[in-house]
Design a protein around this nucleic acid. Structure first.
Lengths: 191, 191
DNA sequence: TTGATCATAGACAGACCTGTCTGCTAGTGT
DNA sequence: ACACTAGCAGACAGGTCTGTCTATGATCAA
């Protein structure tokens, strides 16, 4: 099974690029098939329906984005309070990347009807991120970890959304700055 | 010209409802025509292309949402600092509304390619809101009005995005709480 | 050699999309 | 009475969408 996974990977890589750049509905399977150099039958063998490719796409994005988020957090040092601030460096890096078009999950949710598997997948992602933030806030010794985690999540998602609109290139820095203030306030109440 | 505006209004009202509920690409002009009880020729007379209807839809949303935002701010009293916090009540009200599906502009931007009139329209909206927040922050006597305005905008857009994902029903309250903290911090530096 | 498996190439069906066009009806101002 | 305007009804063209199908070539194991 050497070449068998190759076709699947080519499809998924192409879908990743096109879905993110143009939107899910705007990209037809025909285009993905053409750009990935794969036969139609092969496509439908690996992904019996377009929606399953969309789910695989979201899984891929989840893995990448979560990894960047954790890496940025850990780069800030061992202190969970520092990590809650440092993770915003991942936002800054993402926004500066060429062709940045915001959060793939927020975008996918905008196109999918509530209740559909695709929409549920985006909800699951946001919940997982929030759980991670809650853990960090708890270990940071925040007075109200739940509230702090939610606030950080709001700043993060706001930064992702605003970056997509390109309305404010300074958004990531403002988000990090605000996060620092919130973390300090939550910690000072304890100290 | 009594009935003449009626057809146009019916089209726009139907589009407003359907575009927001299902997404712009997911709604075809045929459906809008059928649900608004209008002839196809009449539709294309008022809106020569679908994109023009989309722009009219965004204008309508802009008027409504901006109005709600300002009303919520003014309900908090005459102090600009209070208004910066009070405006989040509009977010709470919106999120509780049945069929809430997030910010129409963020959703529209997710479907439109950057550079298109529709995308530009969303950017203009966010810029207008940011300018309003900047004015409020300045009049509130904040140390760094630009930074405070951006932070408030991030919390607002984050709340809109998260509410759409329905991942966190408490998001509006958390956003208001965080905003109160940021406003207090920015003001205390002056006092 | 032969059969199984995986790939490619592309025709095809059936639905839906935007936008144009032709007829027809009804009210309105002159 | 007559022209004008606004609207309704729906056929039509040309394109795109998802998904199925047939036919063919390449690889590899028995």
């Amino acid at each position: 099974m050497v070449t068998s996974s190759s076709a699947r990977d080519r499809i998924l890589d192409t879908a990743f690029r096109l879905f993110y750049a143009r939107g899910i509905r705007a990209v037809g399977v025909d285009l993905i098939i053409a750009e990935s150099g794969v036969a139609k039958a092969t496509f439908y063998k690996h992904f019996p329906a377009k929606d399953e490719l969309v789910l695989a796409y979201l899984d891929k994005v989840d893995g990448i984005w979560t990894g960047q988020l954790r890496a940025a957090a850990e780069a800030a040092g061992p202190d969970p309070a520092d990590q809650l601030v440092g993770l915003f460096d991942a936002l800054g890096t993402a926004c500066r990347r060429d062709g940045y078009r915001g959060c793939a999950f927020i975008n996918a949710a905008a196109e999918a009807a509530p209740g559909t598997p695709v929409h549920e997948r985006t909800v699951a992602h946001k919940r997982a991120v929030l759980a991670w933030l809650r853990d960090l806030a708890t270990r940071a010794g925040a007075d109200d970890p739940e509230s702090l985690a939610r606030s950080i999540a709001l700043l993060l998602d706001g930064g992702l959304a605003d970056g997509a609109l390109a309305a404010d290139p300074e958004a990531p820095r403002a988000a990090k700055h605000a996060a620092r203030g919130l973390v300090a306030a939550a910690a000072s109440r304890v100290a």
